[in-house]
């Protein structure tokens, strides 16, 4: 079947199988930031934005995304660059496999709630699993970014 998807701002028309998953579609278009971590809709590594809303691309049919706008990290590097350095400064991540999904969901969080509390950050990002860390470094990194944006110091 034929689908039209606006992937990272570019309108694509493609012939796909009816049961193709969105994760496999975006990866077939070279968006390798989108990772398959769990296969059980649990880990958040495959997070993409569908019309601006973060969803698990492993659980969405590419056919359902027909006519919609999909953004992956490849298309949002400028927005991500604003804060990823703060997370890196905390040495938060070790292997980095969970990073793209985590960054995508953080972008969604900051668009919806530009100045979240710790509790709001945790609640929004709880569906992004990281097996190396205890999440404290990521939380410190986001906190440092928010502090910097409010005009405070960047430690």
């Amino acid at each position: 079947m034929e689908i039209k998807i606006t992937l990272n701002g570019k309108l694509l028309t493609r012939e796909i199988e009816a049961d193709m998953l969105l994760i496999d579609f975006v990866r077939s278009e070279g968006c390798y930031s989108v990772k398959r971590g769990c296969e059980t809709s649990n880990c958040g590594l495959c997070t993409v934005l569908m019309d601006g809303t973060p969803v698990l691309s492993c659980s969405v049919l590419a056919a359902r995304a027909n006519g919609h706008k999909i953004d992956t990290l490849e298309g949002l590097t400028a927005e991500a660059e604003e804060f990823v350095g703060f997370i890196a400064d905390q040495g938060a991540e070790q292997c980095g496999f969970c990073n793209p999904g985590f960054v995508m969901n953080t972008i969604a969080l900051l668009r919806e709630n530009p100045d979240p509390t710790d509790e709001e950050i945790k609640k929004f990002l709880v569906g992004n699993l990281c097996r190396c860390s205890g999440y404290e470094g990521q939380l410190r990194g986001i906190r440092a970014f928010l502090e910097y944006r409010r005009g405070g110091n960047h430690e």
């Binding site: 809709s41 649990n42 958040g44 997070t47 809303t53 973060p54 969803v55 698990l56 659980s59 969405v60 969901n105 969604a108 609640k123 929004f124 990002l125 709880v126 569906g127 992004n128």
Partner: peptide, 12 residues
């Protein structure tokens, strides 16, 4: 619903 998996899951 707030304890169900995560925001992305609940969006779908």
């Amino acid at each position: 619903v707030e304890h169900i998996v995560g925001v992305q899951f609940r969006n779908t």
